[in-house]
């Protein structure tokens, strides 16, 4: 009973915040609504016992992706009002697309492959642990290769973006201290002026 109550609470918040994402005028509010939607759906996952997915959703999407989104919105100072001008005009097409997607999903999800009443394998008590076990033992090799890909991504990103700017007036103190007479002064022999 209590679980159902919590489920409906989070589902309600999820739906309202999801509507908010597309209707709110201020892009910052929209991003914050999206964060709320992620939180609510991660709570729903936690309720249904998929705690790993719930945690990952918060860590990856809220912790990293949304922060990046907010940065981009704030840095670019987008005026989304212009983008939202035709909201009413595009509404029928949008609703039509949404209707077709819903219809397709109903058709697909009614297929026998998705109608599983009994879980195929017994549910692990702790699915983070179960995932970790399989990832770090059976699939340790692909896991390491994936880690190497991330390392490569870091190296490649730095190679392509790091540049030494020559026009900055940054002081290099050790260089300034170590300067000697020969670097700055030049003695020139010349005939005495008469």
């Amino acid at each position: 009973m209590f679980q159902q109550l919590v489920f409906y609470l989070f589902t309600g918040v999820l739906i309202i915040s999801a509507i908010g994402v597309v209707t709110v005028r201020n892009p910052i509010y929209a991003a914050l609504c999206l964060i709320l939607a992620f939180f609510s759906s991660s709570a729903i996952w936690l309720l249904s016992g998929a705690e790993f997915l719930g945690i990952v959703l918060v860590l990856v999407y809220v912790g990293a992706v949304m922060v990046l989104f907010l940065f981009v919105i704030m840095l670019l100072d987008l005026n989304l009002d212009l983008l939202k001008e035709g909201f009413i005009r595009y509404l029928p097409i949008g609703l039509g697309a949404a209707f077709i997607v819903t219809l397709e999903m109903i058709l697909v999800l009614n297929m026998p492959a998705f109608k599983i009443s009994q879980p195929l394998a017994s549910l692990p008590a702790n699915n983070t642990e179960a995932l970790g076990k399989i990832l770090y033992t059976d699939y340790a090799y692909p896991f390491e290769i994936a880690a190497v890909i991330l390392l490569l991504a870091i190296v490649a990103a730095i190679v392509l973006t790091l540049r030494r700017r020559t026009d900055t007036k940054l002081q290099n103190i050790s260089e300034q201290i170590q300067v000697s007479r020969h670097d700055r002064l030049r003695l020139i022999k010349m005939q005495a002026e008469k």
Binding site: Y139, Y141, P142, I145, A146, V148, I149, L152, A153, V155, A156, V159, L160
Partner: peptide
Amino acid sequence: LLIYLGLELLALALYA
């Protein structure tokens, strides 16, 4: 899975 991961490792390095 490893064919794919190896391919990505190869390709990402080449793009850069």
